[in-house]
Design a protein around this nucleic acid. Structure first.
Length: 675
DNA sequence: CACGCTTATATTTTT
DNA sequence: TATAAGCGTG
């Protein structure tokens, strides 16, 4: 049944037997189809779906692949495949088997900002916040920690290479990190890095390892170029040599764009050594893009300093040259994009078959205003800060203390909700309640009402207590119902604490909406942090999807997707490559691949643009603007010849033109890393 | 010690 | 933009 749908290389990959398999799949070469077909083939050969582990870069991708496999086999039970991201799968496995590692099955998951908050508490406790000298911010600490763990590199080395301005504070950072491990263990919380570390520990342990590895007959991993050293270790441990090493990985070194998350293409390059006897299949025939789009993409990546051992080809001969348009300024660019989008729509291309891609989430701000003005509906992927908004965190913190009464960060937020309680008051209350340490029940203590309350805060604390009691009473209460109750408590709090409370209160309704469909509070919390709403439409709910809408997306979030028409905006030096990413060649090359990813999303029509006059939106009323040049990746003649360049309507003065520059094992392992 | 005010600062990408 | 740190007041 697959023979007609797949080309020989795809078929070879899909029907590969036992043993390790590396599929090197260029952009648009039918990677998803192939992987879905492989799942289908395995199921048809008698492998039970629940014994297949499918690791993808988003839950959405996992769902899509499983759905396609179901369609190919006609079997409903393919949905029982274990699909999801590394982190989501780790969460699932650790809830089942974490006990062996000393983890409670009710552990809570800290997202990156949560982890940063814990680090911040320690930063203050250990006296680094008040010092005269400036000390790395909590976000920086979180980023350093994450890189150390994910790359498996010593702290000192990471500091030297990626955070040279923090080298002087190495000892302080080390002290904070040591305390951080301890604190997380006490609280039964795991951050993103822990999820991976504990999965690895689970898989490496002589007791649990064989059992966990034996849960799965086949493991398939998508976007392998964007995995890091730790993730590769996990896979190796999940496929020990004593068993048939049924591991399929799919990736494209030319599309590696997650270096900042410690991903390394070495994983792909070293795969055959790590898994001896690995079969390698290359997919080079592109089915997605027109010839001119493919030529441009190939030309851009050909100038990469690194070698990419494949050249995409297509049998298509249709298509027009991609356009590079220099715009006057951002409004002009927004105008050009809107016109182009509407023109394509007149030619029968629906809005949702068109996308606008950009490097950073805020690059679409001006365009969004223009789209709203012209009544062009759109959804935006990437850069969504919903869960990071203070009031949403407040609501979630309330749920979290109910779920895990030793969750310190959550308590710290919750206890500052009542009027008259600030950071110090909250700390005192936490001490009295016994939040730290795993003994006792701080929640019960608070509800008992036997705790001394800071002067003037009596009423506020009483309100908080009754709100929590209203949820704690009934274990059966569903999370959405709990949120409903908490909302009545939170609304006045939000009105007092924040300006512009209107939209913030509306966000709480969204949150309650997201919670419907969850029976368990713990699951809701875990899934929300591990698979947060990816787009504005995820939040808007199903009705909005009926309407045709344009897609706006960061290039990162566009990974694996494709559209008939693609507009890449802000294709200027300083944006692509981002002037934040010019520290070394490695970063620069990643930016080039990012542009490559953007270009290869397009099927029929590709428009690049950049504003020549670029106001720095950061400072309001700032008259200072800069003159931007086209991205250096589009500058060389070898690339230009694949573009139709539209001249600026007004020339920029030459002299003004400047580029914008601008547990025990885990703990011991960590202790070793921190030196 | 909370809270409201001012000022500095740093802004990428995501699980 | 918006958050964090610094400072004065109650």
């Amino acid at each position: 049944m697959f023979e007609e749908e797949l080309n020989p290389a795809q078929l070879a990959a899909a029907t590969h037997g036992e043993g390790p398999l590396l599929i090197v799949a260029g952009a648009g070469t039918g990677k998803t189809t192939t992987l879905a077909a492989r799942v289908a083939v395995l199921v048809e050969r008698g492998v039970r779906p629940e014994r297949i582990l499918l690791v993808t870069f988003s839950r959405r991708a996992a769902r899509e692949m499983v759905t396609r496999a179901e369609a190919m086999t006609g079997r409903r039970d393919a949905g029982r495949v274990w699909g999801g991201t590394f982190h989501a799968l780790a969460n699932r496995l650790l809830r089942l088997h974490g006990r062996a590692l000393g983890l409670s099955p009710t552990f809570t998951v800290l997202d990156q900002p949560d982890g940063a908050d814990v680090l911040n508490l320690l930063r203050e406790e250990l006296g680094f916040a008040t010092r005269e000298r400036r000390f790395p911010r909590k976000e920086t600490l979180a980023a350093i920690h994450s890189r150390v763990v994910n790359a498996g590199t010593k702290l000192d080395e990471v500091l030297e290479r990626h955070y040279p301005w923090c080298v002087e504070d190495a000892d302080g950072i080390r002290a904070i990190f040591r305390a951080y491990i301890e604190r997380k263990r006490e609280q039964q919380t795991l951050d993103y890095d822990d999820l991976l570390l504990f999965w690895k520990a689970l898989a490496c342990s002589p007791h649990t390892g064989p059992q966990v590895a034996a849960m799965f007959d086949h493991i398939l991993v998508d976007e392998y170029q964007d995995t890091n050293a730790l993730q590769a270790d996990i896979l190796e441990a999940m496929r020990p040599e004593s068993t048939p090493r049924n591991l399929t990985v799919v990736g494209d070194d030319a599309q590696a764009i997650y270096g900042f998350r410690a991903a390394t293409v070495r994983n792909i390059l070293a795969f055959p050594e790590r898994f001896p006897g690995a079969h390698v299949v290359k997919l080079e025939r592109n089915y997605r893009s027109s010839a001119p789009i493919l030529s441009l993409s190939n030309a851009v990546i050909a100038l990469s300093a690194q070698r990419h051992e494949k050249t995409l080809w297509t049998e298509r001969t249709d298509g027009e040259l991609p356009v590079l348009r220099a715009c006057l300024d951002e409004p002009d660019q927004a105008d050009a994009v809107c016109r182009s989008v509407l023109e394509h729509r007149e030619h029968g291309i629906a809005l949702h078959e068109q996308a606008v891609l950009f490097r950073a989430a805020h690059h679409s701000d001006v365009l969004e205003v223009e789209l709203l003005r012209r009544n062009i509906p759109f959804v935006k992927y990437g850069g969504l800060k919903f869960l990071e908004a203070a009031h949403v965190k407040d609501a979630l913190a309330l749920l979290r203390v109910l779920e895990n009464p030793h969750d310190e960060v959550a308590w710290f937020r919750v206890l500052q909700l009542p009027a008259g309680v600030g950071p110090q008051g909250a700390r005192r209350l936490m001490d009295v309640l016994g939040v730290r340490g795993s003994a006792g029940d701080p929640l019960a203590s608070l509800l008992d009402g036997a705790v001394p309350v800071p002067r003037g805060a009596g009423e506020g604390v009483r309100a908080l207590r009754s709100a929590l009691a209203g949820c704690a009473d009934e274990e059966v209460l569903r999370p959405s119902a709990q949120l409903e109750r908490l909302r009545t408590y939170l609304e006045p709090v939000i009105e007092r604490k924040y300006e512009a409370p209107g939209p913030r209160i509306a966000d709480l309704e969204q949150l309650a909406l997201l919670a419907r469909g969850y029976e368990s509070r713990g699951r809701f919390l875990a899934e929300l942090t591990l698979d947060p709403p990816a787009s504005t439409s995820d939040l808007a709910g199903p009705p909005a999807l009926d309407e045709d809408h344009l897609i706006l997306s960061t290039i990162h979030s566009a990974k694996g997707l494709e559209w008939d028409v693609v507009h890449v905006i802000h294709a200027s030096d300083g944006c692509i490559p981002s002037d934040m990413a010019l520290r070394d060649d490695e970063e620069l090359e990643e930016e080039r691949r990012l542009l490559y990813v953007a270009l290869t999303r397009a099927r029929h029509s590709l428009h690049l643009s950049f504003p020549q006059r670029y106001y720095r939106r950061q400072k309001p009323r700032d008259d200072v603007h800069m003159y931007a040049l086209v991205s250096r990746f589009l500058e060389p003649e070898a690339v230009r010849e694949h573009l139709r360049v539209e001249a600026p309507r007004v020339d920029v003065r030459e002299d003004a033109a400047v580029a914008v520059d601008g547990t025990a094992d885990v703990d011991a392992y960590l202790a070793d890393l921190f030196g």
